[in-house]
Amino acid sequence: MNVDLESLAEATSGAIGSLLSTTILYPLDTCKTKYQAEARSHGRQRYKNLSDVLLEAIANRQVLSLYQGLGTKNLQSFISQFVYFYGYSYFKRMYLEKSGYKSIGTRANLLIAAAAGACTAVVTQPLDTASSRMQTSDFGKSKGLLHTLTEGTWSDAFDGLSISLLLTSNPAIQYTVFDQLKQRALKNKQNKDDKASLSAFMAFVLGAISKSVATCLTYPAIRCKVIIQSANSEEANTKKEIKKQQKTISAVLYGIWKAEGILGYFKGLKAQILKTVLSSALLLMIKEKISATTWVLILAIRRFLLLPSPRVKNL
């Protein structure tokens, strides 16, 4: 059995990093998602600021509800990052082997990242939809994963898939920028140390910069996706057909424009940047520091399972 252990190590370390960063920042993610999902109705807003979501949870003694859907989110995050990093690492290595190049260019990197992101979106879309619905439910009224996925039709579980595919440009931009910045940062170190690697602080900074760029460029689509996937209110549940019609991409775009104007497309941008930058920076920092350990563990497992020897990797 021929196993690509190098890609497996990349995928595993990326998934573990995603799991830890998601758990640490989950309350912020819940507040951010509920704030983004709210559409202004008749000039009234339930949440004027991101902090209003937190204050509501405290006032209703539902602070623990800030963690509603955490299990689903972690499952979705772990699977998506594993699939993404495995696909990205595998496609990148295959490209280098086929082309004979020693490094990968920006265009090729974008295409590879987009391909890996598209595969990830299709595989994890039902979990992504479920986690968004659980987060945007009223505090204390979130339903379980199975109930959330089965309360509608099968197609409902793939709400927002088209936007998710469009948003594959987000991680594509992020990891391309990070990879290019990382290569430049390591150039000076390689002359002094053949085993040079990024420090935790440098990985954090580069991760923050790369994610900020990607988030600003794709934010209007991000907010549309949150609104489409958000949980229905009790009033809306009595008007499912109307609600479904309102949650098409064109209807959401028009609704935001009509109720909030052009600035509505960027409502919650600061919160999105804060959360995603911290999350991605933590993810890449953790991944960078545990990748060598993950590789050693996988080699140990390979030896135990008597798998064929992989290509030697310089740590």
Rank of each mutant, 00 (worst) to 15 (best):
I209S: 01
A200P: 06
R184P: 03
Y219E: 04
R223I: 03
F204K: 02
K187E: 11
K192H: 12
I227C: 08
R184E: 02
S164H: 00
Q174H: 03
Q190H: 08
H147V: 11
Y175D: 06
F178S: 08
S164M: 13
K195M: 09
R184S: 14
A185Q: 08
I227G: 02
L166E: 10
D159N: 09
C224I: 15
K182G: 04
R184L: 13
L146S: 03
S164N: 15
G160F: 05
I227P: 03
T148W: 10
A203K: 01
S142F: 13
A214Q: 02
L145T: 15
K187V: 10
R223D: 12
T153F: 05
L167I: 08
Q174I: 03
K141E: 13
L186N: 12
S164I: 02
S142C: 14
G144H: 06
N170R: 01
L165A: 03
A157P: 04
H147L: 10
K189H: 11
I222D: 02
Q183N: 15
A221C: 13
G144P: 02
V226T: 14
V205P: 01
S142V: 01
S199G: 15
S212W: 12
K192L: 14
F204E: 04
S169K: 08
G152Q: 10
K195P: 00
A185D: 11
H147E: 13
Y219N: 01
